[in-house]
Amino acid sequence: MTAPIPFTVIGGFLGAGKTTLLNRLLAGAEGRRLAVLVNDFGALDIDGELVAKHGGDTIALSNGCLCCTIGDSLVATLLALLERSDEFDHIVVEASGVADPGRIADLATLEARLHRDGVIVVVDADDVQRRAADRRVGDTVLRQLKAADLLVLNKIDLADDPSVVRTWLDGQSMAPVLEARHADVTLALVFGLDQHGVSQSDGNPKPFRSWSYSWPDPVDRSALLAMLDEVPSHVLRAKGIVRFADSADRRSIVHMVGRRVDISEDGSWPGDVESRLVLVGTGAMLHSFERE
């Protein structure tokens, strides 16, 4: 069986900047064949020259990406898409403005062909507190924030006082926050594209850093989980292939997006190699982590 396809959900209320982020993603995909499920092609900024084929509810781009409209049923669209899963490497779903993106990400947990990557929730820094206080949509907004693995605090330049909204947001969600203007985030961080040819050359001015760890001996599971639990807030992702002491004959894949850690086993441990873990994030690493 082929490796499961990473499945990312972009959530956020109407107007937060989901489409802007998608447009950046499509422009910066660079060899990574993305299948992007959107509510409406209209808002996508697809250069006419990039369109290889327009088939009604699907647009194939010359960079290898696919865009599909979700139409009436995400479930039906997704299952149909999985029938042609050899055509892409990663699925990104744009949740509707009122959807709970966590529930969409749940689908990946139920589908062996998918691997749940992150729930990215885009937040309008200037508008989110007003929306959250609205008696009709406030609960919807707060559910989205709680469902996030990573928060993109967009339009930070429009916020009267960014520190106020940051503080408020910390009270609503455990997820790490990336500040952005026009959704100018580092795609590698948000979508975990780092191992696949997308680098800082995606036109993004913000650097990201990575830290590698390796262990020759089997690793204590709880120690590793404790380590991930304590990483500084600017560590946004982790990926590792680890030999745990409690299942030393197995290859365990460690995957972290935001503060959400998934561990799965995908086969037997391939003999004389070291366990490896890579953390990626912004800013400087704490000394205590550098020593480990």
């Binding site: 049923s73 479930v75 039906a76 299952l79 149909a80 969409i104 749940d106 689908l107 139920l110 589908e111």
Partner: peptide, 18 residues
């Protein structure tokens, strides 16, 4: 329930359910 149910029903019946 809900989305989970819908997904499993479609999977079980095949995507041609609609």
């Amino acid at each position: 329930q809900e989305n989970t149910a819908k997904f499993m029903a479609y999977k079980a019946a095949g995507v041609e359910l609609a």
